[in-house]
């Protein structure tokens, strides 16, 4: 039950938080920092909607004790566009990550409950693998449940975003 102060960097901002030993990262993000974009789906690691980046790697915040990630860097769905803006200096602040825009256009969002997790996993894939194949996309999203879309539109959104992001950097092609 021990409570103590811990440091955590969330979406580029340093926080000092009073956290109990058993608090999960999901709980701290939602209930202390009021970042409600990250969803609480199953709370047992089965659905993927609580996915955030921990030092850039997609991780399930519901099965991660906050104290075990003391001092590390977290990006949530609220910080994805900000991260993207910082990633591409000179282009100015971004209102959305290209995958967010693509998800809306491709009909990849219905009830939207799975979307934050899908986008965090998809954006990490696009960062590491600029032109992912269909199998790579399916693999990257394999820990994410969607009860609405049937997945096709979500996979398509990642492909759409990949295509646009590729066009934006022709020198790398």
């Amino acid at each position: 039950m021990a409570e103590s102060v811990m440091r955590l960097r969330v979406n580029g901002r340093e926080h000092h938080l009073v956290v109990s030993d058993e608090a999960t990262l999901l709980e701290v993000l939602r209930e202390q920092l009021h970042l409600h974009g990250t969803k609480d789906g199953c709370a047992v690691g089965s659905c993927g909607t609580c996915t955030v980046w921990l030092d850039g790697v997609p991780r399930l915040s519901c099965v991660t004790l906050a104290k075990t990630v003391e001092g590390r860097d977290v990006v949530t769905i609220e910080g994805l566009a900000g991260w993207w803006g910082r990633e591409r200096p000179g282009e100015g602040a971004a209102a959305f990550h290209p995958l967010q825009t693509a998800a809306v256009e491709a009909g990849a969002v219905q009830c939207g409950f799975c979307t934050p997790g899908m986008l965090m996993a998809g954006a990490a894939l696009l960062r590491d693998t600029p032109a992912p194949g269909r199998e790579e996309i399916r693999e990257a999203l394999s820990g994410h449940l969607c009860r609405c879309t049937g997945y096709e539109q979500i996979i398509h959104a990642v492909e759409l975003a990949a295509g646009r992001m590729g066009e934006a950097t022709p020198d790398e092609a």
């Binding site: 030993d21 608090a23 999960t24 209930e31």
Partner: peptide
């Protein structure tokens, strides 16, 4: 959200 029951964590 149901919090976990109180626990203590130590990292030797």
């Amino acid at each position: 959200m149901m919090p976990l029951r109180p626990l203590s964590l130590t990292t030797p």
